[in-house]
Design a protein around this nucleic acid. Sequence first.
DNA 1: CGAAATCTTGAGTATAATCAAAAACGGTGG
DNA 2: CCACCGTTTTTGATTATACTCAAGATTTCG
Lengths: 259, 259
Amino acid sequence: MSAEHLERFVRKLESIAPLSPDERRAILSLPVSLVSLRAQQDFVREGDRPMRSALLVEGFAVASKVVGAGKRQITYLYVPGDMPDLQSLHLSVMDFTATSLVPSKLAFIQHDALRQLCADHTPLCFLLWRMTLIDAAVYREWVANTGQRAAISRTAHVLCEVVARLHAVQLAQDYRIDFPMTQAELGDALGLSPVHVNRVLQDLRNRRLIELKGKRLAIPDWPALCKLADFDPGYLHLKADAARWDAGSQRGTPAPARN
Amino acid sequence: MSAEHLERFVRKLESIAPLSPDERRAILSLPVSLVSLRAQQDFVREGDRPMRSALLVEGFAVASKVVGAGKRQITYLYVPGDMPDLQSLHLSVMDFTATSLVPSKLAFIQHDALRQLCADHTPLCFLLWRMTLIDAAVYREWVANTGQRAAISRTAHVLCEVVARLHAVQLAQDYRIDFPMTQAELGDALGLSPVHVNRVLQDLRNRRLIELKGKRLAIPDWPALCKLADFDPGYLHLKADAARWDAGSQRGTPAPARN
DNA sequence: CGAAATCTTGAGTATAATCAAAAACGGTGG
DNA sequence: CCACCGTTTTTGATTATACTCAAGATTTCG
């Protein structure tokens, strides 16, 4: 059944706006085809004209564009619940490439099915539209981040963003996340050389603002990191409860007393 | 009447996709209220919750975000036909500020009217959505531009973009445009200091790649500038005829033999 | 014409890039 | 479990690009 994979999508949508039971049902009954990816696999490429959109169910992926000779810029980090090429529903030709960074699972949804969903549920149509607008807001923030902030704030900023976005879909417990990017990949996302990324990360570690080891990232002092990063989550346009960090953050899976 | 101002909007939409006569009529009969702006006026601010969207009819405007202390990043350049805050139709809170750079004219369209348009004409709804997706594609390119390209290519790239976008709405004749940005403003858009912008522009002038004087910009050697800029207009997702530069570029106003 | 804004120039500095090599890590197969 | 391989991270030294500061020239506009 596809429902379990689409749960992820519901989770993401609910981090943006409430869903009616009817809408929820409509989404969960979308036909999907599930695909497993290895690490470092392109699943849509610049120039492609997809007839379906991919939902990232599990794993981690990036969008990137090649620039000039041999350089690339990563323009977005995808976490479970994101639909990297939702835009292909209305923009036929892809202008970037999406790549898994770790073994990941995708659920493909045909454009026809999405269009039908839009026709049947105007509010969902607007919600999908809104999702793409939030992506645009994130790009804007990245422009500002890359253009104006010094390396250390810039780096801190994307770390804050990933943690906040994972938190919104309940994948960050206690400011701890899986973070599988290599320093070279981070460099491609930040517009910094790998060597400099390394030095910046050491600096952040020495200041006790991050703990990064293996593929795990922890933020011991969230307010301090946000301050250094000049991070204000407003641009993520999260629903109030998805943005909150208190105990209520376990919405959807209210832990029953299990003693 | 509002029709003459909405002509600009039709022109812009037609640079992306063809319109049926019926759709054209629906757009031209949108109720608008016209407003004139002085230079350097904010017409939507970060944090606002607009009930209407602004169409830039005449002039030049920018989107910007404030970053840290006293710095700002310009994230988009608006030319006539653009709707800077179309996104507010679905994202209630603005996450950037839009400002006129020169005396400009805006046509405000109530969100209700746009929603009605969407309800009555599904294809137009999707076209508006697509417009916002193209904006996102432009942001992506800006991320790549700011992150990866050296100052001279980066500068050349935004100049190419403005010229190409003005061309698409028939406001660039022969690679000449009105370009009212100061060097300091360009710096805010490029993530460069004003002083460095100045040096880069001189370099571009010395290489005979641009002519920039007063508020006029001319590109004497378009292919050479594009090459230096690593500029490929694909990300603008223009309709084939809007992207073309040959004699046919005067679509819509076919100059009758006037001898 | 004068004041303010914008552009230009020069000199010194800082941030981050590059190059190169060594250390640490992660996974694999024996 | 350990030895080995490739990848990733780390370190050091040098260089380049772009920033800052400051002052002078030029343009724009009232």
